[in-house]
Computed example of a mutant assay.
Amino acid sequence: MSELAVILDELAHVPDPLASKEVSELIRLIRNAKRIYLSGAGRSGLMIRAFANRLMQLGFTISVVGEISEPHTQPGDLLIINSASGCSMQLLAQAKVAVSNGVKVVIITTDVHSPLAKVADTVVKIAAQSKVSQTTSLQPMGSLFEQMSLLLFDAISLKLMKITGIDETSMRKNHADIE
């Protein structure tokens, strides 16, 4: 079996989180948020940045935490954190600031009992291998979680397209033109 076939097989065996009530709640929170903040560390952070880009193209007002242009949070805002372990002290500090400012917090994680999960309003579980889990994967460290989170974010984007009636032509108008 090729390496790509192994990866695809592993992804096919991760339970689909899309139909969960937590993902439905995440979609509701996205649609109702004044501004959406997105954060993650390492490769999980790269996946959440891809989601931030897609949400912006869908017309949502977004900010990536840590960017120089990030404004102050307000009640009615939403913070989405992607963290396999849910243990990053930096992300936990961000979540606590958000909560103290009246911001709803959602975490996408493998560990629903993690410190970040305890602070979050909504916890979306991806039952996949991470760098700290005991779940086995032929891929190194957290690759399976990272891949699955990106696929989940793309699936949520498709759901949002359907719900809002925004098509790819409309999204192109929000696509970067100074590249």
Rank of each mutant, 00 (worst) to 15 (best):
L8D: 02
D9P: 13
D9M: 10
E10A: 10
L11G: 07
A12I: 12
A12M: 11
A12C: 12
A12Y: 09
H13I: 14
V14G: 10
P15I: 04
D16C: 10
L18T: 07
L18K: 02
L18A: 09
A19D: 13
S20L: 04
V23R: 05
V23S: 09
V23C: 06
S24C: 07
L26C: 07
I27R: 02
I27N: 02
R28T: 15
L29Q: 15
R31A: 15
R31Y: 08
A33E: 06
K34D: 15
Y37Q: 02
G40C: 08
G40L: 01
G40Q: 01
G40D: 03
A41Y: 05
G42C: 08
R43F: 09
G45F: 00
L46F: 08
I48Q: 08
F51A: 09
A52D: 02
N53A: 15
R54F: 03
R54T: 10
R54L: 10
L55H: 05
G59D: 05
T61C: 01
I62S: 02
V65S: 06
V65Y: 02
V65C: 11
G66K: 03
H72G: 06
H72E: 12
Q74H: 14
Q74K: 14
P75T: 08
D77F: 06
D77E: 04
D77T: 06
I80F: 00
